[in-house]
């Protein structure tokens, strides 16, 4: 009986010893070197950079589902409150206004609030759908208008939730069909201006028709206007012209009794 007990004891010890040695070797001495990780396992400062990129990406593409999917991969660091907290920290440390705005927008959209979120979202603007249906593609050399009017204060967060302004930054201030002008016949003349009416070069303009699209930039004919661009239409074809998400549709050469018409479109940046 004693021998039997002794045998079981030895077997148990042998198993435990083998197991311990195996674990020690594989975890401590020679761990599996080949690994690939998720964003959740990034270094803390890199997780914040990843979060910032998610926010910047959301700011430009408006794809909330994708932003949420990306946030999920960050684990706890991807909670909306983390975006709000990071926006706050950057806000108080004088961080980049565009980054703060992007984080604030993402946090706000996902329901998180903080001082920076409130401070960086415009107030008293019309309510629009939170996800733009048209995604503007800005030219990298012309950063979108970032007017950091916000100044840090120690005032408490207001009770009123600000309304997010997601309107395209340009308004159409003139949309005119031009007849009886041979120089303009068959041409879409596009003028892009700042809020003061000055021409803006390097602004991307998209002209689409059927399933085709052309993209070009203002400023290629500075002798006419720094914010000028034009496009030659084909007779009978319908065109849409888009500047940063602001679209003018149903443009064509049809409509003038005297012959092919031209168009003059003026896009003005909002204040």
């Amino acid at each position: 009986m004693l021998d039997r007990k002794l045998l079981w004891l030895r077997l148990t010890l042998a198993l435990a010893l083998g197991l311990s040695l195996g674990l020690t070797y594989a975890w401590l001495i020679d761990p599996d070197e080949y690994y690939e990780t998720d964003p959740a396992n990034l270094r803390a400062d890199l997780r914040e950079d990843y979060l910032t990129l998610i926010a910047l990406s959301y700011r430009i593409n408006g794809d909330l589902a994708r932003a949420q999917a990306r946030l999920t991969t960050l684990g706890k660091a991807g909670k909306p409150a983390s975006a709000a907290a990071l926006a706050d920290r950057l806000y108080h440390s004088g961080g980049d206004a565009e980054t703060i705005r992007a984080l604030a927008l993402l946090a706000h959209t996902l329901g998180a609030q903080s001082e920076a979120v409130v401070a960086h979202l415009p107030t008293a603007t019309p309510t629009m759908a939170p996800t733009p249906t048209t995604t503007p593609t800005p030219l990298p050399t012309t950063p979108p208008t970032a007017t950091p009017t916000d100044t840090p204060t120690a005032t408490p967060i207001p009770e009123v939730t600000p309304t997010l302004d997601v309107r395209p930054p340009y308004d159409v201030v003139e949309q005119r069909q031009v007849c009886d002008n041979l120089e303009v016949a068959g041409i879409i003349q596009i003028y892009v201006q700042d809020a003061n009416g000055q021409g803006l070069p390097n602004v991307e303009v998209q002209v689409s028709w059927e399933s085709k699209r052309n993209r070009f930039f203002t400023g290629l004919k500075p002798e006419i206007n720094p914010g000028y661009a034009d496009f030659h239409m084909s007779p009978g074809q319908m065109y849409d012209v888009t500047v940063w998400g602001t679209q003018v549709g149903d443009i064509s050469t049809v409509g003038c009794s005297s012959g092919p018409s031209g168009w003059r479109l003026v896009f003005q940046h909002r204040e």
Partner: peptide, 23 residues
């Protein structure tokens, strides 16, 4: 047997999780 179980567990089932990783 114990050694093998330890190795399989630590290498395949629950390998070392590295934190503070780089991009």
């Amino acid at each position: 047997l114990g050694l093998s179980l330890g190795l399989v567990y630590a290498w395949r089932i629950k390998p070392v999780e590295y934190t503070d990783n780089e991009f």
